[in-house]
Design a binder for these strands. Structure first.
Lengths: 146, 146
DNA sequence: TATTGTTATACTCTATAACTATA
DNA sequence: TATAGTTATAGAGTATAACAATA
């Protein structure tokens, strides 16, 4: 490994750069979430339930691009950990409305603060204005996707 | 699915935004590479071999963060497709120097052009100057990772 | 003793088919 | 007939342990 590897071509590719940055940021996030026993997908699901009480599994799947069969296990595990409640949906007998339990709320309150801290630490080489710009440009890409 | 889901908190997170943008860009890349029968990881490996003739498997693993046992199958498949050659390493009898075959060079010449086109199409909502800025900010994040 | 490449294997993540209960 | 949730299962992708050959 004394030779230097030429990665200049790959570094001209947007996909390569976004992927590397994602790995850096998510890697840090994973470490930070160990204390809450949450993986990134757990965090996203619970955060959405917290901010959208009564949301259904189907809506979670659609929003987070998770296939329904893969959501089942997540929700089961959250229920077992007493982080969520499932109540009959008011108008649709097939669905269950999902809410955070008191324990779930307390966990996510701390986890969401930690997530913001983790992000900030990953973005520390960037100024506040650069961070704002970066978010704006990233959102432009995935919102305008054809 | 008539209700709107509130994703505002998640959208304040850098990790969420980079991941969503990565999925958009890589998704497009995957489609574009179908005609070359290359997955993203195949493209990265072959591109590095092309730009670094004589590179070893270990160097590829280190550069692309791939574990050695998982590289074995990739290289076997490339050899079977007559895309790479393995020659004895000049100074280290344990290693093999990897190079692209003529066929591999021809494939990657086209694939690298297609990759740039795919990137450009994913980045079309951004001006040229915004694209340059985005790359710079992303590189700042993964290069300065603590 | 350490490193390269390899085999075998396990674990996680993601994807598909098919079923039930309800709309 | 279509949709929400579920089960079972298959396929990628990623991880660890252990080995032979070479440094």
């Amino acid at each position: 490994m004394t030779d230097t590897i030429d990665t200049r071509y790959l570094e001209t590719l947007l996909g390569y750069n976004t992927r590397r940055a994602t790995l850096t940021i998510i890697g840090r996030f994973i470490e930070r979430m160990v204390e809450f026993d949450l993986r990134p997908v757990d965090f996203s699901v619970l955060s959405l339930i917290g901010h959208n009480p009564g949301i259904t599994a189907r809506q979670l799947c659609h929003t987070l691009n998770i296939l329904p069969p893969n959501m089942v296990g997540f929700l089961k595990a959250f229920e077992k950990r007493d982080l969520i409640d499932r109540s009959p949906h008011p108008t649709d007998g097939r669905s269950m409305g999902l809410t955070l339990t008191k324990k779930g709320q307390q966990l996510m309150q701390k986890a969401e603060v930690a997530a913001i801290e983790s992000d900030a630490s990953a973005a520390y080489p960037l100024s506040a204005s650069e961070q704002k710009t970066l978010m704006r440009l990233l959102q432009k890409i995935y919102r305008n996707a054809a």
